[in-house]
Amino acid sequence: MSKKIKKMAWAPATLSEFDGVRFLHLDSIWVQGAMRIRKPQHLELEYIQRMMVWMLWRDSESLREGHALQLGLGAAAITRYCHKVLRMQTTAVEINPTVIHACRIWFHLPEDDKRLTVYNEDAARWVADAERMQTVQVLNVDLYDHDAASPVLDDEAFYANCFNLLADGGLMTVNLFGRDASFARSAARIAAVFGSDQVWSLAPTKEGNTIVVAARGVAVPEREELERRAANIEAQFDLPASKWLRLVRPLPMSIINQLKAEPQT
């Protein structure tokens, strides 16, 4: 069973289906996740595929190694993928128990086993636990409320705890809205913690989702090596890694200049 937090009132998880795809909602029209019913391990949404861009920063020998953590379960797409396809040690943290229940019933999320643990807990408290420091190699952060307007955890203290969770060489991806004014603030907070030379972003999807990648002490490979890794990912996992590579860019100078202008604490 999932490890639980105190009972509270939560926005209920609801479902819709269209053209062979099942969607998760939180009592609103906004999509919180999706699964192609006949291909449950396929990553259906483009921004969810891009959350896997961390794979470019890992060589083929270590691609499947380590502990993958998902903050915000959604329709469990990344959690299923890390557990079932990559076969990594996988953990998910989700505050809303109705989401976990819906994922177990409707989105092929398996029960906990020796490689999978789902916590019904507050992600802010979970990542702040000092006993978990440097225990994670891959961290995926997708924390939005039922209105899907902005991240519910988005301050420097939270990102500092995320940094502390990562082992040396660890990688974090974060879903942000790149066409929203909050993107620059969020990216600047991440860069303030990880360092601007350890943070990159992808161009926004057509829906406006921008994936930010942050690393803890990762040396960026040469372009030829990244191209080899992209080709390997495409061949093994049928993910559009070559497209990711074309879309990855350093943080805009406006954000870096904003960091330089702010007083250091």
Rank of each mutant, 00 (worst) to 15 (best):
Q70C: 04
A75W: 06
G33M: 12
M55C: 12
P221L: 02
S2V: 04
A11L: 14
R223M: 15
G72Y: 12
L176Y: 09
Q236C: 08
L24D: 07
F163M: 11
Q32V: 12
E65F: 08
R246Y: 00
L139Q: 05
G72C: 01
Q264S: 09
W106G: 09
R223Q: 14
L239M: 04
M133N: 11
T98I: 05
H42Y: 15
R179N: 13
S60G: 11
V127C: 09
F177H: 01
L43R: 02
Q264G: 00
R189H: 10
D59T: 07
E65D: 14
V31S: 10
N161P: 13
K206I: 07
N96A: 04
L251M: 07
S201M: 06
T90K: 05
P240E: 04
A34K: 00
T135I: 00
L56H: 06
G72N: 03
A241V: 09
A128G: 09
T117H: 13
L171S: 12
C82G: 10
I100C: 01
L226C: 05
N96E: 08
D59Y: 11
F107A: 04
F163D: 00
V174K: 00
G33F: 10
M1G: 15
R185Y: 03
G169I: 12
W54H: 14
Q236S: 12
A192T: 11
T91P: 05
Y119A: 03
V53A: 15
V21F: 12
P12F: 08
A157Y: 08
F237N: 05
L116K: 07
T91S: 07
V218E: 11
D113N: 15
D59I: 04
G208A: 13
A188V: 01
C162T: 05
F107I: 11
H83D: 06
G72F: 06
Q264E: 11
G74Y: 11
A102W: 03
H83W: 07
P250L: 02
F183I: 09
E156Q: 15
E94W: 00
V141E: 06
V141Q: 08
A160T: 15
E17H: 01
L202Y: 06
W244G: 04
R50F: 11
Q137F: 08
K243R: 15
R64K: 02
Q32K: 14
R246A: 12
